[in-house]
Design a protein around this nucleic acid. Sequence first.
DNA 1: CTCCAGGGATCAG
DNA 2: CTGATCCATGGA
Length: 281
Amino acid sequence: MEQLNNLKHFNIAQVLECGQVFRFNKDKHNDFILVAGNKKIKICQQADSIIIKNSTPEDISKVWKTYFDLDTNYEDITNILMNKDEHMSKIVQFGEGIRILRQDPWEMLISFIISQNKAIPHIKTCIENICLNYGTPIDSLTHAFPTVNQLMNVTDEQLRECKVGFRAGYIIDATKKVFNGEIDLENIKTMGINEARIELMKIKGVGPKIADCILLFAYNKMDVFPTDVWIKRMIEGLYFNGQDTKLDKIQKFAKEYFGELAGYAQQYLFFYGRENGMFKK
DNA sequence: CTCCAGGGATCAG
DNA sequence: CTGATCCATGGA
């Protein structure tokens, strides 16, 4: 158990509930249980301090500081975005404790393939099913996200038993391509955004939106702007007079307006919209 | 019952 | 190239 103090711009509820991560739950005391890699921790926050249970000083410095993006200065990021306009001022203040996690590319790839055309609670259920059935146990209740090798042994039918539906074929295609080296998830780290996006979209079931989610949440390409139906509606409402606007136009706007901070802006927008019930027509 | 979800593949024009 | 349709599943 380790404690971190004087955290600025860190609110664990906002970090976990802004839509970037799926393997977490809130317990009776409003603490959060989080699974990442082969580690399971409990996070308790009081004001600007957090306690991370089931961790060591070494884990903090080698795993969680990076995972939670604690070395990034969010004071500058939030200030720049809040100064864009009155909407962003309100929206960024509302989610000022958000940080963009640095998650595992393989897990993000499969998780966001599953996410397509699904509601978030159901996405979480599918991922847990796959982990419980095919991942290495961490404790009696929790298994790690399965490795590439572990998923290579899983059939279409078995995946459908995990309730992923038609996405089963996409998961199999992704697993094969990563396994045989056709897609090199490590090498993507060295690529520019356009090249990386094209590479990810070679996988069946990975289009622009899912590729951008992987680029933002796993590869930390902070200037992408994953545009799902909800972000689309919010941008239309805030900046296009509520008019139906094409995806490429929204992407172009976000790139010009938010620049290299577009990815952060997207998360503040998503969190605000979700928490305030704006995700309906 | 119908509608839709953190989309994308496929088909029609 | 753009737009419509289909895809599993569960919750509203």
